[in-house]
């Protein structure tokens, strides 16, 4: 507790940095996953390709990915952009399949009604398919959010500071207060993101809260 009392400003700074490194890739990843998921639904042949590729991407060790990034992108080693891009790759790995599954989960009779009314292309995606895929996509987004918060802490090993730095430093110097603070702060951050997504999904799906539940 003493440690936290004298270092809380640093902790807040690191938490802000952590949120940035985990949150921005979450949004970028979601944006990239939408067209990928849509493709995987439209062309059945693309679905297994999307699922397999994204599954493989997720198995790359994070440390390796952080180290490769400067080489691929031509950035400096300590540049936070490396972490942002790497985390975006992980997010897409998780979300592309989720978006595809969400779009595929739209009930057949709704799809047919949309076709019969003359819905096509982007208008159909935004007006009918995406809104109904929100519950599935939000569930995937929650997993990705928690996973991002946890993976980002590894970035301390390549010198990009965030809450993970507390763990590394606390461990090296055996400061228990610092270690515990690092762990708890990560947890709080993950719960916070999770809660935000939950609230957002609720706001986007008012029809699911009415009597009779999901239609």
């Amino acid at each position: 507790m003493d440690w936290l009392a004298s270092n809380w400003r640093t902790v807040i700074d690191l938490a802000g940095q952590h949120l940035y490194l985990a949150g921005v890739p979450l949004l970028l990843g979601l944006l990239l996953s939408l067209p990928l998921g849509w493709l995987a639904k439209r062309w059945r042949g693309a679905y297994p390709a999307v699922v397999t590729t994204s599954g493989l991407l997720y198995t790359i060790p994070s440390l390796a990915l952080f180290i490769i990034m400067p080489i691929v992108l031509g950035t400096k080693i300590l540049d936070p952009v490396n972490v942002i891009v790497a985390m975006t790759v992980y997010t897409v790995a998780l979300l592309a399949r989720t978006v595809a599954d969400g779009l595929i989960s739209v009930p057949d009779h709704v799809e047919q009604a949309a076709t019969a009314m003359g819905y096509r292309g982007l208008r159909r995606l935004v007006g009918v398919e995406l809104p109904l895929a929100v519950p599935v996509i939000a569930a995937g987004l929650r997993v990705a959010a928690v996973s991002n918060v946890s993976i980002v802490s590894v970035a301390s090993l390549v010198g990009v500071s965030q809450l993970g730095s507390l763990l590394v430093d606390g461990w090296r110097r055996i400061i228990w207060g610092e270690l515990v603070t690092g762990i708890v702060a990560c947890l709080v951050l993950a719960l916070l993101l999770d809660g935000l997504i939950l609230l957002g999904a609720k706001a986007l799906t008012p029809w699911r809260r009415v009597a009779g539940g999901a239609a």
């Binding site: 009930p107 009779h109 019969a116 003359g118 096509r120 009918v128 109904l132 799906t205």
Partner: peptide
């Protein structure tokens, strides 16, 4: 044109087929 043809024809789908989110 398909979409124009469809918008000019009323279609009642089996079991109503309403959009649950609207």
């Amino acid at each position: 044109k398909q979409s124009e043809l469809r918008r000019g024809i009323g279609y009642v789908i089996q079991h109503a087929g309403l959009f649950p989110h609207r």
